[in-house]
């Protein structure tokens, strides 16, 4: 079955890093059977979320920033699966990826509901695609770093009504395994 997959590439280099080469190869293979959008975030004109909340109470569901983020919002919310790809930098995913995930609050509704005794914003859309983390290690990456990254992205998933399906490292995982995991783990909406 044809799937729609969004890859947010948080590589901070000029696109010639091992991570970007890996993603290029992965996207090529995925495109044989699926529809794939790849966003090289660092090369795009993307502003930081300024916490203006226009998307919640002025132009509901629509971001006030005039930059290149809109195609990302469209792709993410209409996807069957998202890959958050990034090198680890200072123990976490890159600022290019973080600023993009900050902007995804545009996809949520301001109303609050309680889940497991915690406040969360309600869904604006019916379906929020699950995601996988595709990471590149940095010097000194240890098990604790990986647990911390997973914890924070699991919290992201709680807020975004979706699920982190896996965390993989380009050093240890070939593209075939990633493709298999996407296809095997994703419910088509």
């Amino acid at each position: 079955m044809n799937m729609k997959i969004t890859i947010l590439n948080g590589d901070m280099s000029n696109g010639t890093s091992d991570l970007s080469i890996y993603i290029g190869n992965l996207a090529r293979q995925l495109k044989e059977n699926h529809s794939v959008d790849v966003f090289p975030l660092h090369k795009m004109n993307l502003h930081y979320c300024s916490g203006c909340w226009s998307c919640w109470w002025k132009t509901p569901g629509q971001c006030a920033k005039h930059d290149e983020a809109e195609p990302i919002f469209r792709s993410v919310i209409n996807s069957d699966f998202i890959i958050f790809a990034s090198p680890l930098m200072a123990g976490f995913t890159s600022s290019a990826l973080k600023k993009t995930t900050d902007r995804l609050i545009v996809l949520l509704h301001p109303y609050i509901k309680l889940k497991n005794g915690e406040s969360h914003h309600r869904k604006r859309y019916d379906h929020y695609p699950n995601f996988g983390l595709l990471l590149q290690r940095e010097l000194g990456t240890d098990e604790e770093d990986i647990q911390i990254v997973n914890t924070i992205y699991d919290r992201f998933a709680l807020n975004f009504h979706n699920e982190r399906k896996y965390t993989r490292f380009i050093e240890f995982t070939n593209a075939d395994e990633i493709i298999y995991e996407i296809t095997g783990n994703t419910a088509i909406h």
Partner: peptide
Amino acid sequence: YTDCMPGIVKEFFENIAG
């Protein structure tokens, strides 16, 4: 921001790391 630091702070961390 999304149960983490804002992107702008992450950029700062990248600049002081290393």
